[in-house]
C-alpha cells in the first residue's frame, strides 16, 4: 500500500502570536515550528499501517526550506521518503493543487492529512484534494483500519460518531485517537538523515484569496471576582450586567 501523508508546518501550540511590517507578516522571531498536531496523528497511523501490512509512507509538505528539519523528523518517525514543494503556502486551494499534482503522478492508495492545520484552521485541504482527484474524502477521522482495498473508519459527527466503509483510494483528515503519537528513536533519527527528500517546484496558478492584514484580539478587561459564599450573585450579574442569561 502506498500512503501519502501531508504535513503542515505551524507554530508550536504554546507560541505567542504576533505580526510585523504593519501587521501584514507573521513574526517568526522566537517561534518554534512543529508539524501540525493532527498531522502527527495522520503520520503515526500511516506508519502503524505500514508496520502491520507493508508498503511505503511518503511525507509531503508545501513550504520553504525552513520546513526541512520538521520533514526530517517525520522521516525519523518512520516515513520512507519525502517531497517538499518549494512554495509559500498561500491558501488552501493552492496547497491542494500542489498535493493533487503530485498524487496524480504517484497513485497513492491513501492520502492522510490532519483534520485541520492549526494556523489557519481551515480543515479545507483534504476536501479540495479529494475533489481535484475525483476521489472520496472524509474528516475528522478518529479510527482507521485497512483490509485489502477496503477502509473501515469512524468519523466524528456532532454529538457522536459514524462508522463507515469505503474503497481505496481515499483522502482522510485525521484526529486523535486514531493513533498514539510516535516519538522518533535514535536509530530513526540516524536513518532519517539519508532518506530521500525531493524538492519540486510548484505548479502555477494565481491565488484565489490573499491575506491583506492581521489583527490581534483586543486585550481582555480585568476579571471581576465574586466571593465563593455569594456564588449566586454571579447569576444576577450574568443577567443584569453581562446580559447573557
Amino acid at each position: 500500500m502506498k500512503i501519502l501523508v501531508c504535513i503542515s508546518v505551524v507554530p508550536d501550540t504554546t507560541a505567542k502570536i504576533s505580526f510585523t511590517d504593519g501587521d501584514t507578516k507573521f513574526n517568526k522571531a522566537g517561534v518554534q515550528f512543529i508539524a501540525g498536531p493532527y498531522d502527527d496523528y495522520a503520520l503515526s497511523r500511516a506508519v502503524e499501517l505500514k508496520e502491520q501490512s507493508g508498503g511505503t509512507v511518503t511525507v509531503l509538505n508545501v513550504g520553504d526550506a525552513d520546513a526541512e528539519p520538521i520533514i526530517r523528523k517525520a522521516l525519523a518517525v518512520g516515513a520512507d521518503d519525502a517531497i517538499r514543494v518549494n512554495a509559500e503556502p498561500t491558501d488552501a486551494y493552492f496547497v491542494a493543487e500542489q498535493i493533487a499534482a503530485i498524487a496524480r503522478q504517484e497513485n497513492y492508495d491513501l492520502i492522510l492529512m490532519g483534520r485541520e492545520s492549526i494556523d489557519f484552521n481551515g480543515g479545507q485541504v483534504h476536501g479540495i484534494v479529494g475533489e481535484l482527484l475525483g476521489i472520496a474524502s472524509f474528516s475528522p477521522v478518529m479510527k482507521l483500519d485497512i483490509d485489502g482495498t477496503t477502509a473501515r473508519f469512524a468519523r466524528e459527527i456532532e454529538g457522536g460518531k459514524e462508522s463507515l466503509e469505503a474503497s481505496l483510494p481515499l483522502v482522510l483528515g485525521c484526529q486523535e485517537p486514531i493513533a498514539e503519537w510516535k516519538i522518533p528513536n535514535m536509530r530513526g533519527i540516524m536513518t532519517a538523515r539519508t532518506k530521500p527528500l525531493k524538492v519540486v517546484e510548484p505548479v502555477g496558478h494565481d491565488s484565489l484569496t490573499q491575506v491583506t492584514q492581521f489583527e490581534l484580539p483586543p486585550a481582555k478587561g480585568a476579571v471581576k471576582m465574586i466571593p465563593a459564599e455569594d456564588a449566586g450573585q454571579l447569576i444576577t450579574l450574568l443577567r443584569t450586567e453581562a446580559k447573557v442569561l
Partner: peptide, 16 residues
Amino acid sequence: SSIYTGKAFAVTEMKA
C-alpha cells in the same frame, strides 16, 4: 476570520 485557533484575526481579500 479567526486564525491561529482564535489567537489572531486575518483580513482576506477574496479575488475569485
